[in-house]
Design a protein around this nucleic acid. Structure first.
Lengths: 212, 212
DNA sequence: CTTCTAAGTCATCGGTCGGTGACATGGAGA
DNA sequence: TCTCCATGTCACCGACCGATGACTTAGAAG
């Protein structure tokens, strides 16, 4: 933060800074009230700027949304293919359910987009992010048959926990410690990995992949 | 369906029937496009009636939504307090994830309401339904400590699966058979019930509850 | 000081929204 | 057939929406 940034009392003209402020305000508004519940005028008013600037800088409300709620974060997930699944899920659990995400009013970007699931385009974005970003990483670390289904169950657990915490503000999840929750989730994930083929009696774990 | 109902080419006047048709159309519209994405004019057009009738019969768009998307179904859940949890979850799994719900365009009412989670009032309705209708039944059938948190994990799994199937249309969940999925979910629920207190070494399962 | 470009503003458009009150009309009872 | 009430229609309101294009002005270059 430079001196000029700090002393912008008289509103110095700075396209990049204004654009960034608009993006920040848009993130908050979209997270809090969804796509339909957010007006271009609201966002511009937060920044203290004319609404027309939004269209000059972003083209349309939808493009602004795309740029504001885009997430670049699924990196580091596939970094180490040998990382065990419970580890990966634990990290995601922290990101999706327990992390602050102040820039998105406390919610993970996926949940923010889910809140605007009325727009089919936004729904498709969430679908792509989940199906191509997370589920394959889960499935690759699953043993046994139908790993895709088991991966989706793990994803459903995380997504559901995020929805319950952020949208429903469920009491136990709100007050539970991360460690306690992580331990329970890890146990569930282990059960998922170890689950034998439904209908068959024996276990078919490929190699000894014990808990932890 | 009487003869007159069937032969309503010349639009006989029938308040009750028109009201019911408006409710049906509203259910579909709200389920498909959410609260914000649905206009009173759309609903009225589906029925072939003037939009003003909506306000005459229901007072406002919000009251229409309340009456249309109200769910009476959580009965039969607490019917038998001795019914094991995996049974209860299996039933809910069928209702939330696999049932047709033609009147709601294929989705469970909870998911329909979740799709309109922009409106705080609707969000609060979902919260109440989940927290007071489902979670206590789960928690009552959980053993060990912090049953509330475990109950919320079970609820999160179901809710997440519903979201993934209906909003995200995830491939594995779409193509998996109910039985295969039910078996996996039952195993997860068993792991949840048996889970010992996180952080403690010993298991504290009350009675011997082996894997199935 | 003048000039010129880009950052920001203003007025406004066409459309849709939820909602209201006056009006028309079908259809049963007299 | 005439009356009358409930059912359904019509015209319209004010507010808000996303979006456009002409305009103003800040501020560096010369």
């Amino acid at each position: 933060m430079t001196y000029d940034d700090f002393m912008d009392h008289h509103r110095r003209r700075d396209k990049a800074a204004t654009r960034a402020k608009l993006l920040d305000a848009a993130r908050l508004r979209f997270a809090r009230h969804g796509f339909d519940g957010t007006g271009v005028r609201d966002i511009a008013a937060d920044v203290g700027v004319d609404p027309a600037l939004v269209f000059r800088y972003f083209g349309s409300k939808e493009q602004l949304h795309d740029e504001a709620v885009r997430m670049e974060i699924p990196e580091g997930l596939a970094a180490d293919p040998d990382r065990p699944l419970s580890d990966v899920v634990g990290t995601l659990l922290h990101e999706v359910v327990f992390a602050g995400w102040e820039q998105f009013d406390g919610d993970h970007p996926l949940l923010v987009m889910l809140r605007s699931a009325g727009q089919p385009a936004i729904r498709e974005q969430v679908r792509t992010q989940v199906c191509e970003g997370y589920l394959p990483e889960f499935a690759a670390r699953m043993g046994g048959d139908n790993p895709a289904l088991r991966a989706e169950l793990a994803g459903a657990l995380l997504l559901g926990m995020g929805v319950m915490r952020s949208l429903l503000d469920t009491p136990a999840l709100r007050e539970a410690s991360f460690e306690e929750t992580r331990a329970l989730v890890a146990r569930l994930v282990d059960a998922l990995v170890d689950a034998p083929r439904p209908g068959r009696g024996g276990r078919d774990r490929a190699e000894g992949r014990g808990a932890s």
